[in-house]
Amino acid sequence: MADIDYDLVVVGGGVLGTFHAYHAMKKGLKVALLEKDSMPKSATVRNFGQVVPSGMNTKWQEYGRKSLKIYKKIHAKFNITVRQEGSIYLASNEEEVQLIEELREINRINEYTSILFTKAECLSRYPGLNENYVKAGLFFPEEITVEPRTMIGRIHKYLQKKGLSIFYQSKVIECYALGNEVTTQLANGRMLLSSKVIICNGSDFKTLYPQLFATSDLEISKLQMMQTKPQENYKIPGSVLTGLSIRRYEAFAECPSYLKIKSKELLESPEKKWGVHILFKQAMDGSVILGDSHEYADAENIDDLGFDLNMEIDNLMIKKAKEIFELPTYEINQRWFGMYSQCKNSDIFERTIDRNIHIVTGIGGKGMTGSAGFAKHNINQIFNI
């Protein structure tokens, strides 16, 4: 027997799917959220937990700024691990100083608060920062961090209290349209009927519509990260992004000097080879998460990325991190990798099948920051609100 009807079934309980469910509920719709595992286990929980609209281009910064408001609004009612301690980009040379000065001007025009810190101010605010590394910093006080391994579970609990139906360990094997309804078939034999389905499948391209994804421009990025043991009597406030981030993040591509500065970079460096840029974020237990790296494969060749950690990459990241911060300990407690999907030629992958089945994936590294704001826009589009 088919289950009761829903206005919307969302396939995928990660951050992108969850916020589609959230905004649909806010519009008064009856929503079911399906997650194939006991809890989300992919990119949503395998990241730094940095919500940094400052790193995005103008279009996605707007979504990210809306996301900040949404995170803070939910946290005011239900603890989802939000900490507002700001984000800083640390410039290590005069070229990077020029880029952060240009980004400050862009954000002034966009009316997004940023503060230029002197070298002395950076050293005062961030203990252990190497004075030979930092030249200046650009600080964004409105930005937040969350604990990625627990945040999404807490949002789910909050939404369940608001009436969201969540089905865990519910792998979807088929969606098909019947007139104005969509049948969602689960591997356990259950069926759900809904007016619409939104599929936010992350990097799972082998189950639903595999041929569509195999011929798309989607690619997978594999990122290595690690976490130190807790740092006793030591605190790094907020998110710390460094010179390599300045040279990589898309926000800086809008700076007038960006292309000229990028053209001078050595293409054969280990940092280029592995897509390394160094980030620091202290978790609530006092440990420091650092990374990360980027290896790529087309969606149909995801298995080529393997399931091992490349210790050459980890050792490079630790070496670069030690050049920036002198932490009380660099003893590593955990190492892992995450995988996210992104498009080569667009900012997100969207396809509509049979009018009422909508695929939304390939958000790339923008997921934690951009999903909440983008999902609001997308729900309005899909339901013509």
Rank of each mutant, 00 (worst) to 15 (best):
A214T: 08
N201D: 03
T184G: 02
F140H: 01
S170F: 03
P127H: 06
T113H: 07
L193T: 06
S170C: 09
E142D: 13
M226I: 12
I144P: 02
S124N: 12
E232N: 14
F140P: 02
F213P: 00
I155S: 08
P127T: 05
T207K: 05
K196A: 03
E111R: 15
K135Y: 14
V197R: 02
Q231K: 05
Y112A: 07
T228D: 05
K161D: 14
G137E: 03
F205W: 05
T118A: 05
Y168C: 14
T183L: 08
L178A: 09
T118S: 03
N130G: 05
Q169M: 13
L159S: 02
I166T: 08
K206T: 15
K162D: 08
T184R: 01
F139W: 02
E142S: 08
P148K: 04
S124M: 07
N110P: 06
N110D: 13
I173L: 05
L116M: 05
P127R: 10
K171Y: 04
M226G: 11
R149M: 14
Y112F: 11
A136D: 01
R108L: 05
P210M: 06
F117C: 02
N130C: 08
N233Q: 04
F205H: 09
I155Q: 04
M225Q: 14
G189V: 03
L223Y: 14
I106M: 04
V197G: 00
L193S: 07
G153R: 06
N107V: 09
S203G: 11
F139C: 02
C122E: 01
G153S: 11
F139T: 01
P127D: 09
K157M: 07
L208Q: 09
P127Y: 07
L193M: 07
S195A: 15
I155T: 13
K161A: 15
Q211S: 11
C175Y: 00
A120V: 11
E121N: 05
S195H: 15
L186P: 00
D217C: 00
A187V: 10
L218F: 07
L123W: 04
T183R: 11
L116R: 13
Y112E: 07
P141F: 00
L164T: 01
G128K: 01
T118E: 02
N180W: 14
G179C: 14
D204Y: 09
V182A: 03
A214V: 12
Y168P: 10
C200P: 01
S216Y: 07
L186D: 00
E142T: 12
L193I: 09
I198P: 01
I199Q: 00
E232K: 15
E232D: 15
N233R: 03
G128S: 01
I155N: 10
N180Y: 15
T184D: 00
S114Q: 10
N180D: 15
K161R: 13
K222T: 07
F213H: 04
Q211T: 14
I220Y: 00
N188P: 06
L212R: 04
I166L: 11
Y112H: 07
I115S: 03
M151A: 12
F205M: 02
E181R: 09
K229L: 14
E121D: 02
A177Y: 07
F167G: 08
C175K: 00
K206Q: 15
I199H: 02
Y209H: 10
K171C: 02
E181H: 12
N130I: 04
Q185C: 06
R149L: 08
Q185P: 05
P230Y: 12
E174P: 04
I106W: 03
T184K: 00
